[in-house]
Computed example of a mutant assay.
Amino acid sequence: MRIHALVAIGASLLMLSSASFVHAVKPEDNQATREKGKQIYEHACLLCHGVDGRGDGPAGWFLSRYEGPRPRDFRGGSYKFRSTPSGELPIDQDLFRTVTQGISGHMPPYSGLSEEERWQVIAYIKSFNQGFKGPVSIALLLPNPPGPPSAAGIDNGRTVYIKYGCQNCHGDNGYGDGKEALDGNLKDTHGHTISPGDLTERASFKGGSSAQAIYRGIMTGLDGTPMPSYADTIGGNDKDVWDLVYYILSLSQERQ
């Protein structure tokens, strides 16, 4: 049932996945822009990310202590949601996308800010990390989906899911109950035990639940977590990647 439902909405998924979050012309990254960004940061971001961007704001401590991952340490921490290879800093468009759409269950979307204001706060956030003053990272090629999913492709996606060990963390049926998770072996770079996403719940797709967002997560990994990049393994077979993407989407389709 869920396979047929997913195939039926394939066209709408294609349109959603190709949507762009970057429209406004970025203001020049200078002291004036960063000062305006600082004002926005102090009102909207400081409570979680802290005065110095270390992820140690008062609300951030509470979140990491009781509910979920620690807020991003902008000074040297890893960035999960990128279009760049694992271990590299995100490009500006990645930061803009995250600020705009938020992180499901953890960070609200800031689409209520004007696009200029979002670029200003991004300029200020980048000032915490000297790495952003170096050469700009090159984003991986992230193509649009090749076409609507098929039942045969989704079946192959299940095979790919097992072949690359996704079930070890996410579980046989995607509930986030794999052996590594149940044994408490999954930890972030701070040593905190973390839980893999429940792939049957769209809300657990923190980097976005569109087909292209899931493709991006598979190719780049989630730095700072046990989720690796598969660019050097499955990345050589684009059909298998897309079949895996649509299999993952099929796990949550029947609950929509």
Rank of each mutant, 00 (worst) to 15 (best):
L63P: 00
L141W: 13
E88G: 02
I103K: 08
S78R: 15
C45T: 05
I103S: 04
L63T: 14
G131A: 06
G57W: 01
T84S: 10
R72G: 01
G76Y: 04
E42F: 09
H23N: 12
K36C: 03
E117A: 11
I125Q: 11
P90S: 08
Y66F: 13
N144S: 13
M107Q: 08
A19V: 14
L140V: 07
K26S: 15
P85A: 10
R97F: 05
D92T: 12
V99D: 04
E116G: 10
V121H: 01
C48K: 03
E88D: 11
R65S: 14
Y66P: 00
G53A: 06
G57Q: 04
F62C: 10
D29R: 04
D94T: 10
K133Q: 13
Q31C: 06
N30F: 01
L113H: 02
C48M: 01
T100L: 11
H43I: 15
P149V: 08
G68L: 11
D94M: 10
G37L: 00
Y79E: 11
S78D: 15
N129T: 06
R65E: 12
P148E: 13
F81E: 03
P109L: 07
R72C: 08
G131N: 02
I154S: 04
P108V: 11
G112N: 12
Q39A: 15
S104C: 04
K133F: 04
P71I: 06
I103M: 09
R75W: 06
P148K: 08
L95P: 02
P27R: 07
G134I: 00
S127F: 00
R97K: 14
T100K: 13
E67L: 14
F81M: 09
K133C: 01
Y66Q: 05
M107R: 07
K38G: 07
L95W: 06
G105W: 03
G112F: 14
G37D: 00
R65T: 13
P108S: 08
S83Y: 04
P149Y: 03
P109E: 07
K36G: 10
I125W: 00
F128T: 09
P135F: 10
C48Y: 01
A24C: 07
L95T: 03
G76A: 13
A123W: 01
A152N: 14
L141G: 09
L140I: 07
G134H: 05
S18D: 15
K126L: 01
G60A: 06
L141C: 09
Q93K: 12
L142P: 01
G77D: 02
V51A: 11
E117W: 00
R54F: 11
S111F: 12
D52V: 04
L113Q: 01
K126H: 03
K133V: 02
A59G: 05
P148C: 05
W61A: 12
G131S: 02
Q31T: 15
L142T: 03
A152C: 02
S127K: 00
Y110C: 06
F21A: 15
D29W: 00
R97N: 09
K36L: 11
S137M: 04
R34A: 03
L63N: 13
K126M: 05
R54G: 12
V136Q: 14
Q31F: 10
V51T: 11
